[in-house]
Design a protein around this nucleic acid. Structure first.
Lengths: 216, 216
DNA sequence: TTCTCTTTGTTAAGAATTTGACAAATGCAG
DNA sequence: CTGCATTTGTCAAATTCTTAACAAAGAGAA
């Protein structure tokens, strides 16, 4: 692409996409940045600025065509093709994520499930049978895999990351509570549930402090 | 507290906390912002700046005492008391989250589990029996609940949020794919898995574009 | 104790992000 | 077809966030 887009912008794109899906489902066929800004609770200026990083999708005096903008954002986000995902660690969270990926109408599909626990071998989750971890290298040689989701204890996280990277995976969806060290050409997206919960705890604690001191 | 702390700072605090836990577990008893910066891959300046929002926890010529700083951050994040959590929607994800909260060594405990599905009634997850959704108001009257985790289909999200708020809950951990509309005195923390996956997809797509064009 | 080295807290500069403003383009009513 | 109303794309100002720099404080060696 052209320029480097700021990560602040990228973080907001999926949200735009969600709202456009919603609007499309409701049969709305055009929307102005002003209306969208009221809906999403952001400034209209930010919406226009964000979208213009990728091109002029709107039209003066008209606004944005919902279908068109939706599809353009899908292209931007790389959702126009299906991304095969493997998931490693089929515990509670792993199963939940597998089902989530499997059933969501997103552009991702479960290509394989792996677990260190031999007892799980052969069992099916989200329509896919579980393989043992030692089948992983072989599997990655014969299958095109875009993303590895890591839902394993943090002790193994870095080792498993190293393994999948060594076998050609370039994107990791990391649910473990550690920050992975990876080469420059590998992208990592963290879902740190504990961090999220701690932030909530902070905000809750703040709220209580404010409420009790009767506000300023 | 004193001033309003920027949300950029708050987002980073749980990460500091994680690293301090790790250091403490390793028996390290002091650390300088410089060493921590190398470990965490952020600037030392940012670490000092961030911490100083809350007070001077370090000492010139010495650095920070790991135990002390750990405990101070725990206080800041509101982790020094146990937060009772109810969870609504005991599907795959709900069970995973329940177990996660139950087994993690964090300051949160599952106080109740609720599901609309009558068939689940009485079953146990993470050591807690599942109640039906209509027991919720009664339950909230007799129990002190800090946080409601929502792991339900997005169609019900806003209604359920309204219900728990009406019954006195002030913090929502939202796993649904919609943005909730809540009063000013209610805090919401979103875990939007789909957004996260889309960001990963974007970064992966970008990476591929860069690689194929042989870089600049 | 004294001197040197380390390291913080803090101020200020620099960078990035967000918001505001408006000219130019287009829609739409009459 | 004309003219007013709408709305974008973009430039500039304002704000927020990050990094750099350094004086002051204390650690630790001799």
């Amino acid at each position: 692409m052209e320029k480097d887009i700021s990560s602040a912008v990228i973080r907001r794109m999926p949200r735009y996409y969600r709202y456009l899906e919603e609007l499309r489902a409701e049969g709305v066929d055009r929307i102005s940045s002003g209306d969208l800004s009221r809906l999403m609770n952001v400034t209209a200026s930010q919406i226009r600025q964000d979208l213009n990083n990728f091109g002029g999708f709107g039209q003066q005096g008209y606004g944005y065509n919902v279908d068109y903008l939706h599809d353009e954002i899908a292209k931007i986000l790389g959702l126009t093709r299906v991304h095969p995902v493997i998931l490693i660690g089929v515990g509670n969270l792993g199963q939940a994520i597998s089902n989530y990926v499997h059933f969501s109408r997103l552009s991702f599909e479960i290509a394989g499930l792996f677990d260190i626990n031999e007892k799980l071998k052969g069992r099916e989750v989200a329509g896919t049978r579980i393989r043992t971890y030692d089948e992983l290298p072989e599997f990655l040689k014969s299958h095109d895999v875009d993303i590895a989701a890591l839902t394993i204890p943090k002790q193994h996280a870095q080792d498993v990351a190293d393994d999948v990277i060594k076998n050609g995976v370039h994107a990791i969806w990391n649910f473990t509570h550690v920050d992975l060290i990876v080469p420059d050409d590998v992208v990592v997206e963290n879902v740190h549930l504990s961090d999220s919960l701690m932030q909530l705890s902070y905000n809750l604690t703040e709220r209580e402090a404010e409420t009790s001191s009767d506000e300023e």
